[in-house]
Amino acid sequence: MANIIEVNKVSKQFNQREILKDVSFSIKEGSINGLLGPNGAGKTTIIRLLNGVIDPTTGMMKVMSFDPKKQGDEIRKRVGIVTESASLYHDMTAWDNLVFFSKIYGKYDTKRITHLLEQFDMLAYKDQLVGSFSTGMKKRISLAKALLHKPRLLFLDEPTNGLDPEGINEVIRYLHKVNQEEGVTILICSHVLHQLETICDSYLFLNEGRIVEKGAKKELEDKYLNEIKLLVETGLNPLNTQTYKGYTYSRRGTHQLEFILASKEEITPLLASILNETWVHNCEITNRSLEALYFNIRGGKGVE
């Protein structure tokens, strides 16, 4: 897969404040990427720079082989964006909003609008004012708006903000669908990590304007998972309160023990031993979640 985005040593200063420092990364075409970091880390600034709506202080960028600084309109023609606020006209209907934006992108096509409304389960509400919609519905119309012109690249800035768990799952499902069916490369900015765990192919961790780590989850796991914390729901009640057959553990509940293992390879023999003695209802690695990795990265060498 070719790189659709290439960012090389980009810095951005604004009012004498350094918002981005020496940022470099690349994104492969057709992938779903998470740009993660706390509020104020510079995630939104990166999206703005890549769209050419603001210019970098130093550094070089290429988006679909175009330079955002000089060929911003060429990029914007091929990019869809969902900003943090839904950015729709509340005094217009869903249909009128989509018609307006499709004309703005020079791609007015009622069939496409109908198709997208169907995809996002919003066709029944097309003649209602956007102002009367729930946050989730607005988000869906925003997504439809971003896809009107069949973009190659989709930027989403905190797409799940303000949504209930059901709404979040829906958005994640839609994004997956769009990526699979239309081959759109996606970059999602978020500070809510567990929501992105199931959807992203790779991650960029941003902290205080610097990329502190990047890679696929597997790569991050290999790098940062020095020990395995395994939570087991079992009837096991070892005589030794600290170790069981050489494996260190601590009790987390009546039937819950958390084992600290050196690697994943130790899981099978440990479970075999326990099953020899008693029942096991559940077991789970607790420190491999994106969030746990994120805190590992922040606490580790990545953060200066």
Binding site: E74, R76, I81, A86, S87, L88, H90, F101
Partner: peptide, 14 residues
């Protein structure tokens, strides 16, 4: 005030 200026500036319009 409607937060729509941002979207317009992100669109390919001069």
């Amino acid at each position: 005030e409607r937060n729509t200026l941002e979207t317009l500036l992100f669109a390919p319009i001069s």
